[in-house]
Design a protein around this nucleic acid. Structure first.
Lengths: 327, 327
DNA sequence: CTTAAAAATGTAATCAATTACATTTTAATT
DNA sequence: AATTAAAATGTAATTGATTACATTTTTAAG
């Protein structure tokens, strides 16, 4: 492999000039630039990125911490991250934590060792005990009470909107299948749900809450339990689309019809939501935008450019399809 | 940040000893090891990975080239890659190419600049014009006629099995919705389909082939066209589950029933396949295993350990659900 | 107690780029 | 033509770990 010295020798200039030709071409005269570029071609010189990274203390790499890459919502977020990262000259290291704190901190520490310049955390957990000065952005499921910048949805408002909509259809006994209770998203959405009930003068019943884990199966299980309530719900609001699809399956399995007997609503608007039967009423989230906003914010933090908004809220939409109907 | 020299000064040993304590502790006496470790704790020393990478010419990083991370099959493959990579001490750089050759070669070149030690390519395309000596493994959709090791399915056999099964149900007019024609997977599966027809003495009709792009929508469009055939098919075999789900939707939209009027089969066995209505008959592929096998093979290539099997074939399964029935 | 071999440790070069600072060349002005 | 400022280029230090080779210490054998 040719080094910058080989190039400089052939071009008859110093290594500094070669280096400048590559990184600050306007500091080099047109004539020398040509000579150097010719020498680069001749030697097929490729800068050694490891040497450059080492010298400049920059890896042009960021780490994404994601609870599960196979989750269709997260994989879209990551697509957004990757695209923006690429356009900003950054590479994306994938840290699929599977909820394991040890794996999370292994990846998070890559910043301390300069392997990565920053972190995008998609889980509601601060990977650093005390607020550190590591560049980090928290997206999608965001922790409260840290000074990490966040890219989030107004989850309470979204859940309120969905609950309001179900109430407007005449439902009074609305069950909710949540995500894990320690997640901020779950808490916010639960609050929104309760607020909407209260506003409409509907009494909140604890038996109408069931905890899931975002999987199809947990949607089915939770539904089975909810339907055993003394007064079974006439509508079930799930905190993601997979659980809602599990719910639809379970409801059908019990010989009931969606939405005639029971309305089902989801959250996320994954691509499958439009194709299940009946198509799913849900809240759409701009998944790719979460990713690109998180990446561009992280970029500004790393490079200390412009001002950083502490909390960025993205828009959601209530997507009404046929899984919900009048009570 | 403390350097290895700070540690060596405090421990009263040479930098070589500190380095050895970290990388080859058995070459250091127990006593010195203790002293050095104490000094490491005291200084909170973390080895500078950039310096180490530079010196050792290793980045402990590999690149995954994937056509689309948001595809649920690929995201599972990547989960398998990531898990195995982590256990082997490698980090995974995500290269979502979106089918763009330029982005692909940008990522592929990271190996030439030592940013990555190897590549896992999930697309049927050789990112290097001429067979290079870059460590690379080709998984899932594999190119023919290169010397890249592959991790693949016997796609022809799988398609044959599915077609045989449909024939065994009494279907004679079986349509197929393919992926892009330049993909090896598509070609192999198409061959398997044709072989099965031939074996059963069924004449292959070109009008029964329609090309899709693996999206729900293309499944719908292709189905609409196929149903306009002079003799519409009684079964439709789709080369992935998304298109099959689109097909089911379109069939229902036309007022027909699955499987009573038309049988629909998919490929991949993504998690939704079990939850759509009716549940989808499909071919299951060991997605995570594709990933882990690809990673462990790449590891052996990079580190020149053991022998490398040129082509590894994984098992598939015909999963019979309710989207297919007798003609 | 020697002596040889093995184990432990130390010295200093090395990796390939970047860049502060020094020097030379060019351009502009009088 | 002389002077000065600006632009271009060069010199050599620097980054932090690894490691070949040299040296010292320990262990084992006679």
């Amino acid at each position: 492999m040719a080094t910058i010295r080989d190039v400089s020798k052939i071009a008859g200039v110093s290594v500094a000039t070669v280096s400048r030709t590559l990184s600050k071409p306007d500091k080099v005269s047109a004539k020398t630039r040509e000579i150097v570029n010719a020498a680069i071609l001749e030697t097929n010189y490729k800068p050694d990125i490891l040497a450059r990274n080492f010298r400049t203390r920059k890896s042009s790499t960021i780490v994404v911490l994601v609870p599960d890459i196979a989750n269709p919502f997260f994989s879209r977020v990551i697509r957004g991250i990757e695209q923006t990262a690429q356009s900003l000259g950054y590479a994306v290291l994938l840290g699929d934590t599977q909820g394991d704190l040890e794996r999370e901190s292994t990846y998070a520490n890559m910043v301390n060792t300069s392997q990565a310049e920053g972190i995008i955390q998609l889980d509601s957990h601060n990977p650093f005990e005390n607020n550190s000065d590591v560049p980090i952005v928290n997206a999608c499921d965001c922790v409260r009470g840290t000074d990490m910048p966040t890219i989030e949805l107004d989850n309470a408002a979204a859940a309120r909107k969905m609950t309001d909509y179900l109430i407007s259809l005449g439902h009074k006994n609305i069950a909710i299948i949540t995500g894990p209770l320690d997640s901020t998203i779950t808490q916010d959405r639960l609050n929104g749900y309760k607020e909407a009930l209260k506003k409409s003068g509907i009494k909140f019943k604890p038996e109408n809450i069931n905890v899931g884990d975002y999987s199809f199966r947990s949607g089915m299980t939770a539904t089975r339990l909810l339907m055993k309530n003394r007064i079974p719900p006439s509508a079930i609001f799930c905190m993601n689309d997979e659980m809602a699809i599990g719910t639809i399956k379970q409801v059908k399995l019990m010989g009931l019809k969606v939405p005639d007997d029971i309305s089902v609503a989801g959250f996320d608007n994954i691509s499958f939501a439009e194709y299940c039967d009946p198509p799913l009423t849900t809240i759409s989230q701009p998944a790719e935008e979460f990713g690109s906003k998180a990446m561009s914010t992280l970029y500004r933090i790393i490079n200390q450019e412009g001002t950083i908004k502490k909390n960025i809220f993205l828009d959601f939409d209530l997507i009404i399809r046929n899984s919900t109907g009048p009570n």
